[in-house]
Design a protein around this nucleic acid. Structure first.
Length: 340
DNA sequence: ATCGTCGATCTGACCCAAAA
DNA sequence: TTTTGGGTCAGATCGACGAT
């Protein structure tokens, strides 16, 4: 009897999936027991931490002599196990799915996160996005957490996008975006920065976040015979919509929102299909003026977000941390009016 | 009891090497 | 090349001890 080719391929695919699933589960369960083992060792060390002097050195030496072929019992690693057991209880390994990432992810998280909340957040993102150890390090170094979570974001997505898309879109936004792979030159104009972003499109996409696919630069929109250009056009396949990015070298001004509003109307008319969600606009400014942005966006019909970008880390970290929040500025403005 | 000092230890950042 | 394991070093922290 002849084998039907389609059926064969279907079965082959199912078997491949089955093998992959099983491999993943074996990896997961091996990793789970590894994490529990590391936690247990760390916990023993913690409960005898008063032994102090040379304890870890001796322990490492003696474990190594008992298991000469095994690796991972260096004093350095024992220290990390100790730290791990201090941060989490044993139950939390399962609760937060900590076995979903490797021990080396955990080492990076232990050395680079500031608190447990951040640690868990990065661990979840790593599992969701399948970040390698290196990608995780990049995200940690660029302080993704505070850029995505801690700072209030200027956008008017609520009410202009379906709830689910709005939530996702806000999550996707970062403030500021860090384009530190673009070297700053005096007198750089938007087109120069755009060219560099496009030539580094891989890094650019990584910084934009998951789900972005590059469509075109200087995308041409024809409205009533007139041509307009969108600086950078992306499609986000998680949000299922086009994302138009307008790049500005200066401060945010209300006119930019007006122009973006118009682009988005045109995009929705000309390019968007019924299968796509409403297009979103993102205005990237060199120095955003948050108060102006909020008021300018209030009356815009289209979903627009404004964030700052940095070409390189030009602000010292201390300064970045002390940047005033929108609330600060508003409070100050209100006080000024009260005085007047 | 408190403060300052000094040495020991811990920790984080960075780098390197071997293995995969 | 990427992943994994480990080393080094500077700075932070701890703790003992003596002087006030």
């Amino acid at each position: 009897m002849l084998i039907n080719n389609d059926d064969y391929l279907k079965i082959l695919n199912e078997i491949i999936n089955c093998i992959k699933t099983s491999q993943y589960q074996v990896m997961l369960s091996a990793n789970l027991s590894l994490m529990h083992r590391n936690w247990t060792i760390g916990n023993y060390i913690n409960s005898n931490s008063t032994w102090g002097k040379g304890f870890l050195v001796n322990l490492s030496r003696d474990i190594k002599s008992e298991f000469p072929d095994s690796k991972g019992y260096s004093e350095r690693n024992l220290r990390d196990m100790k730290k791990f057991a201090l941060i989490f209880s044993e139950d939390e390994i399962d609760e937060y799915n900590l076995a979903g990432i490797t021990w080396y992810h955990h080492k990076a998280l232990m050395s680079k996160t500031e608190n447990k909340q951040q640690y868990i957040w990065y661990a979840e993102k790593t599992i969701q996005n399948g970040w390698s150890h290196d990608v995780l390090e990049i995200q940690l170094d660029s302080n993704l957490y505070s850029r995505q979570i801690e700072k209030p974001k200027i956008q008017n997505f609520n009410g202009r996008l379906p709830d689910e898309q709005s939530e996702l879109a806000i999550q996707t936004m970062k403030d500021p975006y860090i384009f530190d792979f673009v070297k700053f030159r005096e007198g750089m104009i938007e087109r120069d920065i755009e060219t560099e972003l496009v030539s580094n499109v891989r890094k650019f996409l990584l910084e934009l976040g998951t789900g972005f696919a590059f469509v075109d630069e200087q995308y041409t929109l024809v409205v009533n015979g007139d041509e307009f250009y969108v600086d950078l056009l992306f499609y986000n396949f998680k949000l299922h919509c086009f994302v138009a990015i307008d790049l500005k070298t200066g401060k945010f001004t209300p006119e930019m929102a007006g122009k973006m509003n118009f682009y988005l109307s045109a995009l929705d008319d000309v390019v968007k299909t019924d299968l796509d969600n409403p297009s979103i606009g993102l205005i990237l400014c060199r120095n955003e003026n948050k108060l102006v942005a909020e008021y300018a966006l209030k009356d815009m019909k289209k979903p627009i977000g404004v964030t700052e970008y940095k070409l390189f880390n030009d602000l010292p970290k201390e300064l970045q941390d002390t940047m005033p929040s929108v609330e600060d500025i508003e409070t100050r403005v209100m006080k000024k009016y009260e005085c007047d």
